[in-house]
Structures are given as structure tokens and as C-alpha cells.
Write a protein that binds this DNA or RNA. Structure first.
Lengths: 216, 216, 216, 216
DNA sequence: CATGAATGAGAGTTCATTCAT
DNA sequence: AATGAATGAACTCTCATTCAT
């Protein structure tokens, strides 16, 4: 009980540092924005000194890029796995993809990444390009695939797939963005318990009691 | 009145100055973010010197608040007028409110304001509160009113109104945010010609060929 | 008497600033070296704030380059004028060039520039190149011209001109360098009253009482 | 004594370490200057880690002082030996001292030490004092002794000895300094094959075809 | 002995803000 | 009303130095 390890807080393990640092940085970048975040704060939140940051990242910009490129791998892999598992049931696949995105991103710390990328895309064009190629496009391809399967089998109406993907993703993205910005003013709107069922009901069944002929 | 002032150039439009300055500032804040925008640039874009900014705004923060509180009055008024005009036809009203928002905000320079507020809400909590009260809540109330009228008259399904309002607004907000961030990477997704018809079709008619029983 | 000007120390004239700053910088760079000089000190010595430096020079490096490229124009011009005036008397020309160099450079603040360039040539290769082309080569050409005239007319021995130029300049350069480094330890050696007559006597008449056949 | 140590590699030359470190440091100090040299680089060039430096030297300043006080003993000793050997032939002694200085210092790595001391004398006054007393003064005394012997025996003209010593040393010092600074721009001037014969010829025989009466 | 992760004071640089003109 | 030179606090980044291993 009276401590088995004599040095519990000595030099930390080098391997864990980078992710401790990016976690601290993600939190602050999301709270205050990239430019308004001071590296002192990032270091303090991670429990290290300012100089230590530079042992792991060459610059503030490199830290930012590491934050972005960090947590997305597992998400995309999970999505691609889901696709393989559920391609026999396109409607369930669609629910699983969108719901899974919420669980892995929207409901977690990673929800800040879309907000960050939206805010900084024009300041970091090459990072934006990378994010577009590796995250946005791949994510859209999964949802588009589910829609196409559903349309093919007559389960879904023959909508325009690319724009439908965007319309489908928008409420989820918006909710995760909202949770990282207006949560204080607007806690109610950020509770997914109401929002997500409504979302699925709405996009699947529409608003009208008797469907019209499409178009606006 | 009784003189043909010999200096029409020197003290031209002094009344127009503040809005020239906020317009320049809005553009730059949206491009680069609040913290990364230098007042030099704002002044240069507005064609004045840096010191002149301080004749009209006490500080960078005051300028930012002016940018936000500037262009929203007309939009809310237009929405409230629409509501009065079209309350007899709730579905048309809904289309008019959402489509009108797109035309007055999403398709214009004002589209940057939602992006800005999302990015800066946590840095300026009192401004966020103001924006929430004066813009978000009032806007939602209009859409909620339209939904309620439609449900009342049996034109719309009896959905949960508050969360439906959010789901309905999200694609429009998202599109306007996207146009101010990923437009370079993703020009296709930012073209409203495809997106808006799909959007109305989807939320009004849903995705499924035969409606399910609701739920998520 | 009780002040004719009401604001003797208000905003200084912009035109004089750059040379005030380079003068302060030259002094400090010579004293402590480029890297060890802090811009705070330069600013303080010039009586301005640190930020003011950046109104006139883009960076510490730009300030350094300005220091070097500053005071050399007049020196080269004077040398070229001397050459034209005294080409009829090569020995007097040689004395005038070497003595003039001492008066315009060695004995003034500019004496620090050779020391600075020697210390920093390898850290600023492009500046070194510039200095070599514009100062060293042009200076050597003048002395070489005087030697050639003297040899042609039989007034000077037919020495190897390029290396002789170097040997001739070395004692002057060394003395000016010495005055900016070991002056405190070695004040005696820095007094030109003894050194310069000895220098001219030695290089003109040699050490030996009866000349040998040349070569070492 | 009584064991064939199984680790000849681990604790190899511990005695050689300090001079390996000062050699690496000398090279870098000469290249970049004291202040601009990082201890990381010194350690890397010596093939050890940064921390190891502190096992041998208390601080960067201590390392610098060791660099300076290192390689000068043998040079002074050789000079004093030469003096004793050649005092019977003052002209040969003079050539031997000056030529020997070139061979032991000017042509070797040690040539950087004069450049370093010139650059840093004012930053390290006590070290400058030490260097002045132990190197400069002792070196000058040797040359002055040779001159005095030569004058005494009527082989050399009765010049002012202290200033002549300086004028004599200056071209050698200058050449060694030049080789550590402008060598890249000015390789030609750094070739001693031309320079040294010219040097000896000039200082021994002078420039004039018919000697003048001295004076400047 | 040797290492290299960690530190933190200090440097160069930026920029919102002021104010004499 | 308008300017822009000047300021100085605050930021990012560096590097001599320490110390647990």
C-alpha cells in the first residue's frame, strides 16, 4: 500500500508523450482556436514544460498537423469494416455508418476535429487537401456506397447520390460542431438523445404526410 | 444645404466608413480567423490607415462584435415578414424560410458569420449569448412556428419540433460553412444547384420507398 | 534660453533613424559579436524600443547586412579619387592610399567592419561574397595599380603584385582589428603614432642593411 | 596490470576524450563563432552525447577556455628552443621564428585560435589577459630578441623594435585569419606558396629600389 | 562513465494600441 | 478626421544545463 514504486512521477515514458501532447493540444485548439492557443498552455495541460513540446514536434504547425492526422485512422477502418459486414442490408448499413460516426467521432473528443478543420482549412491548404482526400472523400464514399446499394435493391428512392451524402452527413457534423462551440448557451440542442432519433426519422421518412413529386 | 462644398473627396462618405471597415474585417476574419487577422490588413483592405480603425472602433474585439451584430437585422426582419405573409400555407412557408435564409445568408458574404461564430463562441461568451438570443433562437422560432402550423393542419407528420428544427437547419448551415472553408478542395460540394433540391426533397419526402415506423 | 522648441524629444525624424540604428548596431556587433548582441541592446543604445527596429529592418540579419553595406561607399570613392589625382607619383599614391585607408577606416568606427566580416564571413556567405567583390577586390585593385605604376617607372622593385598587395594591407588591417579586440590588454600596440611610421619605413626600405637576392 | 580487461571498447581512450572534445569545439567555434555554436553540435562532432561534455567541462565557457589554453604550449616551447639554437645567426633566427610560426600555427588547425581570440577577447576579458600574457607577449619577446640581436650585430637596420615586431607578425596573423574566414571567396589569396616568399622579400628588402631616409 | 529527456530563461519577432502631428 | 511612427507585452522557438537512469 505505501507505494511499491519508489519513483512514480519521474521521467515519463517517451512513447506515451506524443499522444499526451496532441490530446492536450486538441483540447485547447478546439476551445480557443489554433492561433489563440499558446504553446505554454498546451505544455501546462500536458504537464510538461514548454521546451518539451519541441522534443516531439518541430513547430506549432507540426503539432497542429499531428493533432489532425492522429485519431482518424481507426475511424475510417471501422467504417470500412462496417461496410463489409453489412452490405447485405443497406438500410442497416446506412444507420450503422451514420450512427457509428456519431459514436466514434461526434460523441468523443474527436468531435473537435471537424470544427478545427473548418476553421483552419484556408490557413493550412495542404493539410486541408490531405484531410479532404483521406477523411472527407473516404467517408463520403462509404455512405455513397450504402445509398447505391439501397437504391439498387429498391429499398431507397433513386436520389442524387453525391448531394444526398452531403445532406445526410450535415446534421451529424453540425451537431458535433455545435457541441464544441455553442454548448454553453445551448445545452439543450446538444443532447443527442432527442436529436439522433429525429434525424434518422426525418431523413428516412421525410416530413410530408403525403409525399410530393420531389424537387423544390 | 446652402453651399457647394469644395471638398467632395476629403470627407466623402464618413457615414459609410464603419460598414466599409466591418465589411473588410468580415472578409478577413472569415478567411483567416479572428486571432490570425491583423488590423493592418483590415485597414489596408478598407483603404485606410491603421490608426483610422480606432476612430470607429475601440478595439479589435469591438470591431469583431460590430461585424457580428451588423448584418443580421434585415435577415430576421425578412423572416418575420415571410412568416406573416405565408402562414396560410405552412409547407410553402417552410420552403420560403429555409430558401430565403439561403438567399440572404448562405449565398452571400454573410455566410461567413456562422463560421465565425462557431469558431469564436467560446472566446467571446457574451457575444455568443447575444448571438444565441438574437439570431439563433429567433430563427429557430420561425421554423418551429411553420412546423407547428403544418402539423396542426395535418400537412406534416407530428415530429418532435425542436430537434427537427435543428436537423432542418443543419444542411443549410453546413453548406454555408463549407463554402467558407473547404471550397478550394471541394468546389463541387459547394454548388447549391444540386444540393438545395436534394435537400428539400430529402427532408420533405425521406429516403425510404415505404416509410418505416419512425424510431432510430 | 528657456527652450525655443516646445517638443525637443517627440517623434524623431524618420530619415535619420536607419543610420542611428546601424551606428548603434555596429558598435555592439563589434563589441560582442553578431550572435551575442541582443536587439534589445541595440534598440536601447539607439534610444528606441525593440519594436522600432522592425520598422526599419526586417530582421537581425537584415540589420547586420545594412551595417556592413553602409559606410563603405565613401571610402571606395575617396580611394578612386586619390588614384586619379596622384597617378603621376606612384610612391606618394601608395602612401596616400594606405594612409588614407587608415584615416577613413582604421582610425574610425568603421574599423570594426573588417573584424565583423572576418568573424561572420562563414555565417553569411552571400554577404561575404558581396563584401569581397565590392570592398576587398576594389581596394586591392587600387593598391595593385599603384604598385604597377611604380614598377613600370622603375621606382619600385619588380615584386609579385597580388601577394605584395596583401602583405602591404595586412599590417593596417591587423592594427584596426587589434584596436577592436585587444585594446584593453594591449593599449600600447594600438597607438598608430609609432606603428604607422615603422610600417611605411619597413615595407619601403626593408629590414636588411644590405639587401639580399630576394626569396626566402 | 594483472588483468586482460574484457572491455577494450567501452572505456577506450578516456584520456583522449578531452582533447577530442576541444578539437571538435575548436573547429566549430572557428566556423561559426562561440555564441553561434551549439553544444549539441560539438558533442555530435566528437561522437558523444551532449551530457558527456559536462563530465569534462563545467560549462560552455570552460570548454572555450580549454580550447584556447590547449594547443599553445608546444608552440611557445618550440620558439624558445629555436631561439637558443640560432642566436648566432639573427637573420636565420628571424626567418625560423616567423616561418616556424606559420608551420606550427598558421598552416594547421591552430590557425583558428587567433581568429577566435580576436572575435571573443572583449567577451572574455580574463581569458584575453591570459592569452595576452602567455602567448602574445611571449611570442613578441622572441621576435624582438631576434631583431635586437640583428641590430646589435649590424645585420639589421636600427628600427623601432616593438612596433616592428607587430608589423612583422601582422601579415602572418592576417593570412591565418583569412584562411579561416574568406577562404571560400578568396582561395587564391590564401595560398601560402606565393605569399610567404613575397612576405620575406618585402620585409627584408623593402619596396623601394633606392632606399629613402625613413619617416612616413 | 555515459546518456538523452526534460527544463526554463532568454532571444527574435509580431501586432494591438497610442498619440503627436 | 486621418495618419503612421512608436511602443512593449506577448508569442514562438532555442539551447545551455541538469539529472534519473
Amino acid at each position: 500500500m505505501q507505494e511499491g514504486k519508489p519513483k512514480p512521477r519521474t521521467r515519463r515514458r517517451k512513447a506515451a508523450r506524443p499522444s499526451e501532447l496532441t490530446a492536450a493540444a486538441l483540447g485547447l485548439f478546439v476551445e480557443k482556436g489554433y492561433a489563440a492557443t499558446r504553446l505554454d498552455e498546451v505544455a501546462a495541460r500536458a504537464g510538461v514544460s514548454k521546451g518539451t513540446l519541441y522534443l516531439y514536434f518541430d513547430s506549432k504547425e507540426a503539432l497542429f498537423k499531428a493533432v489532425i492526422t492522429m485519431g482518424i485512422g481507426p475511424v475510417m477502418e471501422r467504417g470500412e469494416a462496417l461496410f463489409a459486414e453489412l452490405r447485405h442490408d443497406p438500410v442497416a448499413l446506412l444507420r450503422a455508418l451514420l450512427g457509428g460516426w456519431w459514436e466514434m467521432v461526434g460523441a468523443t473528443e474527436l468531435a473537435g476535429i471537424p470544427k478545427l478543420m473548418i476553421a483552419e482549412a484556408r490557413n493550412f491548404p495542404d493539410l486541408a487537401r490531405f484531410y479532404y482526400d483521406e477523411v472527407i472523400s473516404r467517408g463520403r464514399a462509404l455512405v455513397a456506397g450504402a445509398l447505391e446499394l439501397g437504391i439498387e435493391r429498391g429499398l431507397l428512392r433513386p436520389v442524387d447520390v453525391p448531394s444526398t451524402v452531403q445532406v445526410l452527413m450535415a446534421p451529424l457534423l453540425m451537431l458535433s460542431v455545435w457541441r464544441t462551440s455553442f454548448a454553453v448557451c445551448d445545452a439543450e440542442a446538444c443532447r443527442p438523445e432527442n436529436y439522433l432519433p429525429t434525424y434518422f426519422d426525418l431523413v428516412l421518412n421525410g416530413l410530408l404526410t403525403r409525399p410530393d413529386g420531389g424537387e423544390a
